[in-house]
Amino acid sequence: MAKLADIGAKARSKNAGPFWVTIDVFCNSPEAFATLRKVIRNDMVAGLFKVDPHSLKRFEIASLNVIKISVPRPTVQGSRFDRDMHGAQAAVLLSELELPF
């Protein structure tokens, strides 16, 4: 099984407000973008983050070879149960996801 780095992509995540985290998948070529936009499915991402697939927000920007996925935070940012105040750890989960090829 392949991972994002094997395809030629890097993931970065960031806080997108108190209720959302956004993960950007930067592809190093149009070919990698075309492959990953088909392979990274919403149901896979939803399962990874344990959220409803219908709650995801997904944007594919072909001119930049970027896939942006926003997921609801499991807890409100800054609450005492928040384990990732800046949303930076979400990218690691997506980067390590085994992609079906």
Rank of each mutant, 00 (worst) to 15 (best):
E98T: 14
F81H: 13
V25F: 04
A88W: 09
V51E: 00
G47I: 04
G78D: 14
P30Q: 09
F26D: 14
F49R: 09
I69A: 08
A46K: 10
V51N: 03
N28V: 02
G78M: 13
L4F: 03
V25N: 01
V66T: 13
E60I: 00
A11R: 01
K3G: 01
A88N: 13
P53G: 08
A62F: 03
D6S: 07
A32H: 05
F19C: 05
V25K: 00
N28H: 12
G17D: 04
F101A: 14
F59P: 04
D52K: 00
F81V: 02
P100K: 15
D84Y: 12
S79P: 02
F49Q: 06
V76F: 07
R80Q: 12
T75H: 10
F19E: 12
A62T: 03
V92S: 10
D43Q: 12
S13T: 05
A62Q: 12
W20N: 11
S63M: 06
K14W: 07
L48N: 05
K50D: 15
A91V: 06
V66E: 07
R37K: 15
N15Q: 05
S70H: 03
V21C: 09
I67P: 04
F26S: 06
M1L: 12
L94F: 06
V39L: 11
S63D: 15
I23K: 02
T75L: 05
S70R: 00
E31A: 15
N42E: 14
K38N: 12
A9V: 02
I7P: 01
D52G: 09
G47E: 01
S95D: 09
A9I: 09
R83Y: 08
A88V: 15
N28W: 04
A9S: 06
D82M: 09
V25C: 01
A62D: 13
F49A: 12
C27W: 09
Q77P: 08
I67D: 03
P72V: 09
G8Y: 06
M1V: 11
G47L: 01
V21M: 06
R12G: 12
L56C: 11
L99S: 04
G78N: 11
E60F: 04
V76D: 00
V45R: 04
A2K: 08
F26I: 14
H86W: 11
V21G: 01
K10C: 05
I61L: 13
V76I: 13
P74G: 14
Q89P: 00
S13L: 03
P74C: 10
I67Q: 01
Q89F: 08
P53I: 06
M44C: 03
A16P: 01
R58C: 12
V76H: 04
D24T: 03
F81G: 07
A5H: 13
Q77L: 07
F59I: 12
L99I: 06
G17E: 04
V92T: 14
P72E: 08
L99P: 13
E31F: 07
E96F: 02
I23M: 14
